[in-house]
Computed example of a mutant assay.
Amino acid sequence: MSQSITQPTVSPNDRANDRFIGEFVQETLALTTRLFIQLRRRPSSLAAGVIQPLMWLVLFGALFYKAPEGLLGGGISYGKFLAPGVIVFTAFSGALNAGLPVMFDREFGFLNRLLVAPLSSRFSIVAASTIYIISLALIQTATIVVASALLGAGLPGIGGLGAIAAIVFAIVFGVTALSLGLAFALPGHVELIAVIFVTNLPLLFASTALAPLDFMADWLQIVASLNPLTYAIEPIRYIYTHADWTLGSSAMQTAWGSLSFGTAMLVLVGFDTLVVVLVQPLLRRRFA
């Protein structure tokens, strides 16, 4: 006795959603490929982004090479102390510059062509820039980790390397979103470069990248405890100094007490969420 097999029906809304997702992915990949083609034609930007942190590692490591033993606590060398700071600051600097290509596209008129093109979503422009910057940050991070291992800082295990990648992703995602928002909000690249110059080094020195928290003045300890870079640097530093780290480990000190590894990660996720919530309305108005 034959039985009829009922084929599952696909609603028009499901087909439209599938088509939208497919087109969005295709547009994002195409725009991301364009950025990597530009990088291939001008590889000096990537080379500079790798050479500069290596110089930081070598020069600052040599500057404090003869620092008294036990100065940083736990017998840690300054090279091992410095490596996490260089990793995070390099990723932060690249993410802070994420808005420059978009700003130049604005000024040269290419962005206007994209905005009038029949894109399924103009947010593919933002997604492509984010993927591009995160990819560069991970390449730079891998280079610094290898270089710092060769310079004596050691090499974390597989789990530690994965956690470092996740932390770098978190800080880069939020700062990239902020930079892209500024690229659409500011009138030109001169203003954006001014914001980058004013923000870059102060946030470095107001973090624990170069010195521990207890070395700082009381007011600077409060500023460093509010700095998102500190919440990325300290967990990575804990990975370098503790092979048995867990999410519940007390990974960092702040002006108001110690925080666990997992709490620091939650702070970074909260920072990313806050930036996206603030930037999204601006992008919607600009894209409209």
Score class of each variant (00 low, 15 high):
A147N: 12
A147Q: 09
A147E: 07
S148Y: 04
S148H: 15
S148P: 01
A149K: 05
A149E: 03
L150R: 08
L150T: 06
L150C: 09
L151P: 00
L151D: 00
L151M: 13
L151Q: 06
L151C: 01
G152R: 07
G152F: 08
A153L: 06
A153R: 14
A153P: 12
A153I: 09
G154C: 08
G154Y: 06
G154V: 06
L155S: 08
L155Y: 10
P156A: 01
G157V: 00
G157S: 11
I158L: 13
G159S: 05
G160V: 03
G160P: 07
G160N: 09
G160S: 09
L161H: 04
L161R: 10
L161Y: 05
L161I: 13
L161M: 11
L161Q: 06
L161T: 01
G162M: 15
G162D: 08
A163C: 03
A163I: 01
A163H: 11
A163R: 14
A163N: 05
I164M: 10
I164F: 10
I164S: 04
I164T: 12
A165W: 14
A165P: 07
A165H: 07
A165T: 15
A166W: 12
A166P: 03
A166D: 02
I167T: 10
I167N: 15
I167K: 15
I167M: 15
V168M: 14
V168A: 00
V168L: 01
V168K: 09
F169S: 10
F169E: 02
F169T: 07
A170W: 08
A170D: 06
A170Q: 08
V172M: 13
V172D: 03
V172L: 06
F173A: 06
F173E: 05
F173L: 13
F173C: 01
G174Q: 07
G174I: 04
G174T: 10
V175R: 13
V175S: 02
V175W: 07
T176W: 01
T176L: 02
A177S: 09
A177W: 15
A177E: 13
A177C: 15
A177M: 15
L178V: 01
S179I: 02
S179A: 09
S179D: 04
L180N: 04
L180F: 02
L180H: 03
G181W: 13
G181T: 05
G181E: 12
G181N: 11
G181P: 11
